[in-house]
Every structure is written in C-alpha cells, then in structure tokens.
Amino acid sequence: MDPNEEFQTLTVRHLDSLHAYALLLARDGPRAKDLLQETLLRAFRAFGSYKRDLSFKVWMFTIMKNVSLDWVRGLRVRPVAEEWNGEGGVGGNGEETAASVVPLDPEQILIRNLTVEHVRRAIKNLPAIFREVVELREIEGLSYQSIAAIIGRPIGTVMSRLYRGRNILRAVLQESSSDTVISRRAL
C-alpha cells in the first residue's frame, strides 16, 4: 500500500482513540483539535521511520504525548502530573509499589447495578495523573509496557498509578457521598 494511503487509513481507523487522548491531554475541545492536528503533521513527516511491528496507535499516542509536553514547556497547557496533590502514598506524590496495594472488592459496585456510563463518567473525573493510565488501559486496552512508553515512565510507575486509579474509581463507584472519605479509603 502507498505510505500516504496507509497513513490515512490507519489514522482514520484510530481517530476516536486519538481524539479521546488529545482531549485528555489538552483538556478542552479546541486545544484538543490543535493537538491532534500538530500530532498528525509530526507523525506524517516521521511515518517513513515508523516500524510496523509497533502498534500504530501506541506510536501516535507517543508522538501526541511528546507534542503535549512541548506545549507544557511552552506553557500552553498545564502538565498532567501537577494536578494531583493527594498526600497519601510513599513520597506523597501518588507513587508507590504496586505490590503493596490490594484491590478494593468490587462486590458493592456490582450490587448497585450501575450503568457503563456511570463508570465512564467516574473515570473522566479521576485525578488526571491516574485518569491517563486508567484510560489507556481500560478504554484503549494497552499493555503496561506500551503505556510506560507513551507516558515516558517506568512500568512500576504505570502499575502504581493504575492500582491507585482503579481503587479510587471503585471507591467513587461504591459511595459517592464524600470525596474525603473516598480518598482515605482509596489511598
């Protein structure tokens, strides 16, 4: 297949995912559109060096993350990690070893008989630092290694953020009465 055609086909195939990740990184629709455009321009120029054994989606997400980091450096958007100010966990920055975390029992959530939309909304309301890895895993179905490559962090950090994000999500879905109670239970 002609490379231009291949690039177009792959981009259109993954457009929903690309737009969703752009929204996550850029925070609003207009900026997300800019981020998506700039990512496509950069990716198109680099498509000759794209290795076909790597997922196109992961490759594009990595480029998009880099573009967004460029923007952060240029102060066009706030960095994702700065949004989390929770005091819990080793080092106080939301990082800890994954092995020390036991998942919250999902039984109460199942009893509540929530809809998928409830879960989707709860994921969108997670602190950005956790939302990113939870979305990349639960919605995009990416492996830990791919997520680590995209966000430029070690796999251990991915695991840690994923455990925490999932537990916060469960706490929110179990009892959405008080953020304070939720954060204590989840963290």
Binding site: D16, S17, H19, L40, L41, V119, I123
Partner: peptide
C-alpha cells in the same frame, strides 16, 4: 470495563482530519 471504548470523535473533527490527511 470490557464495554468501554473511546467516545466517537465529533463529526466536525472527523471531517477536518480527513481534509488534512488529503492535504498532507
């Protein structure tokens, strides 16, 4: 979780991306 997927990109965004891809 298995039923979650990305939200569809708005139609306007989709149209613009297609035009950009054609222009590239």
């Amino acid at each position: 979780l298995d039923r979650l997927g990305p939200d569809p990109a708005p139609e306007a965004v989709r149209r613009e991306v297609v035009r950009l891809l054609e222009a590239l």
